[in-house]
Design a protein around this nucleic acid. Structure first.
Lengths: 138, 138
DNA sequence: CAGTATCCTATTTGATACTG
DNA sequence: CAGTATCAAATAGGATACTG
């Protein structure tokens, strides 16, 4: 199992410098959240979006969270925000190269989620069953 | 730009069925969080860990969050929890195949974070500068 | 050792109303 | 249209004490 090629492939990710580790974790912390991933996916597919479009495409998000998440993305250099001085206002968002790179990185996670949806669901059902049959923690 | 090979590669991820999309998003929502990613990384590198080891390795996590996150991972079929009936108790956690697959998917995100740390930091500094120079939202 | 239980605070999120 | 502001509710998270 230790020689599992998967695992071997994964082993060299970890940093030697703990300070860098903290920074990596911080970066992950900023970027690894549901709305961020969703917005980046939408912007990957649509190339360029107005606020209202994002609001519709990103089903379930509140205006507040949308604004907040977009600001964070802009601040971190992942999307650009272009304001056209017209009435009514028009604002366009699009991925930067940096954002496109992150999108590519997220890609694997989306695929994993799609492919393993049922396995996770199944595991949850079994877990609940085991808990119902009760306490033999095994 | 539309013919960007990156983007082309990314385009076919999106589902056609909106119901499946919701499920994918839910799955992402469960799995895309800081502690989950960290614990999975640790368990990838160490293969097998006791509660106390994880507690040390996962710097900054509280006992409560550790327990909570581990239970969620177990429930979703990503780790196994093995209790040895000894005194004092010994409990071992290790990734399942499903968990190892997720680990592999996360791998790209970790690498992205490592490689683009400074670019994100730089973007943040510039953003703050722009805000200080004030309101020409550009 | 590996938790659980409890209390409490802080952060996140949503709903609603308002504005350039 | 694309937000901001405000308040309330929910949730996350930490600290501490206790247990098989």
């Amino acid at each position: 199992m230790t020689n599992d090629p998967f695992r071997q492939e994964l082993l060299n990710i970890s940093e030697t410098d703990p300070a860098v580790d903290r920074l990596v974790e911080q970066t992950i912390g900023r970027v690894a959240d549901k709305w961020t991933m969703l917005l980046i996916e939408i912007l990957t597919n649509r190339e360029c979006c107005r606020f209202g479009e994002l609001s519709k495409a990103c089903e379930g998000i509140s205006q507040k969270m949308l604004t907040q998440t977009l600001r964070a993305l802009e601040r971190d250099g992942l999307v650009t925000r272009t304001v056209y001085p017209v009435v009514p206002p028009k604002v366009e968002y699009r991925l930067t190269d940096l954002g496109l790179g992150l999108s590519k990185a997220f890609c694997g996670v989306w695929i994993w989620a799609e492919e393993n949806l049922e396995r996770v669901e199944q595991a949850r059902k079994e877990y609940v069953e085991r808990k119902k049959d009760d306490g033999t923690v095994r």
